[in-house]
Structures are given as C-alpha cells and as structure tokens.
Design a protein around this nucleic acid. Sequence first.
DNA 1: TTTTATTGCGCAATTT
DNA 2: TAAATTGCGCAATAAA
Lengths: 118, 118
Amino acid sequence: MILENIFNMPPVKGGRRGVSDADDEDDDYRKRRDRNNEAVKKSRYKSKQRTQETFTRVSKLKAENQMLEDKVKTLTKELQFLKELFLAHASNAQTPKLEGVDLEKLLEDIPDEKEKKT
Amino acid sequence: MILENIFNMPPVKGGRRGVSDADDEDDDYRKRRDRNNEAVKKSRYKSKQRTQETFTRVSKLKAENQMLEDKVKTLTKELQFLKELFLAHASNAQTPKLEGVDLEKLLEDIPDEKEKKT
DNA sequence: TTTTATTGCGCAATTT
DNA sequence: TAAATTGCGCAATAAA
C-alpha cells in the first residue's frame, strides 16, 4: 500500500536499480505495459458492450410495457362491459336490454392468460 | 483532415518554431491542455451520469412491468370468472349455480381504468 | 507475490 | 476558435 510500484516502474533510464541488469527489466516493463494495454482495451470493450445492452434492454422493456398497458386497457374495457351487462340483468331480470349484444364474440375475445413472457 | 495538429503541438522543446516566441506558446499550450483536460473530465462525467440513469431506467421499467403483469393476471382471472358465470347462466337460466358468489365484491374490484401513466 | 481487470487521468486527433 | 468526444497509453490499485 506504500510506494511499491511493483507493477510498473516508470522508465527510469538514468540510474540503474540493481547492478547486473542491463535492459532485461526494460523489456520486462514493456512486456507488462503491453499486456496491460491489452487488458485495458478488453475491459473497455466489455464495458461498452454492457452499456449497449442496457440501452437495448430499455427499448425492449418499453415495448413490453406498451403491450401490457394495451392489454390492461382492453381487459378493463371488457370487464366494464360485463359489469354493466350484469348490473342490467341483475336489476331487471325481465328486461334483457343488453342481452342482444354479441356475447359470443365477447367471450371469445377474452384472453386465455397465454402469452407469458419474462 | 491532414496532419495539422492545430489544437496541440507536442511540447517541442528543442527547435523553436518561429523566432520571436520564447515561452508564450508554451504557456498557451499549457493553457489549452488544461482547458481540454477539464472538458474531458466534464464529458466523461456526463457520460457516466447517462449510463447510470440508463441503469436506473431499467430498474423502474422492470418494476412497472411487474405491476402491469400482475394487473393483467388479476383482470384475466376476473374475466374468466365472469365468463363462467355467464356461460352457466346462459346455458341454464334456471340453475343459478354460481349466482351465490360474491358478485358485489367482484364488481367492486373491477378497475375503473384509472391509473394512466406514461 | 504475480497476473489480469478496473479506473482515473492526460494527450492528441477529431467532431461539433 | 473553443468546447465536446473519443481512442489510446500510463500508472495506481482492486480483484483474482
């Protein structure tokens, strides 16, 4: 945690460190720098990928959301309709005012709880 | 588009460019570098902000989505129930099998198409 | 301790 | 001409 700089020693051209080392350490340094530079590229690439995916994710979720909202709207309307139908029938069993409606079609339109995504 | 380097001239210590310029240009250079460095920080900060917001966006959308799915599920069940009720009544008007159900409560539970977000 | 992964930062090229 | 972006390398340091 102190001043180790174990990884990289700045190119200290003037002022050798040990005694029996010519340019071996320089090569080592370069080698390490190059490897790190590669790692950096890799890391940044991954990062960009994630960001991109996140944006895509937002798009998908927005679309899914829209679909669900439409569905809720439709279901609500159908329920509203049935509700009125019921009330009418209940309050006046002898006057099937709405009885003539396309009940069959309505029942067909009822979603069967299919379409379950994630 | 060529090799202009209009913005920054690398610190060419040795080898003056003009003749009547001592370190004015160096100061200029520094000044420009510093300003650019600031701009860079600012830009990267904004970038991170956007990324962060995007992540937040995903979370919110996911939550909203979950809510909508639950709602659809509930509405579907209610419709399913009414559907059966209807069929029972239609096929056998004299045998109100399901008539005893908590119709009132059901009707109350019906969403009133409120809650319209964006 | 060594190696790889992340991150902040500055330079320069390029874009706006 | 200045500010905003972006690719890139260095070094510190976090994570393996």
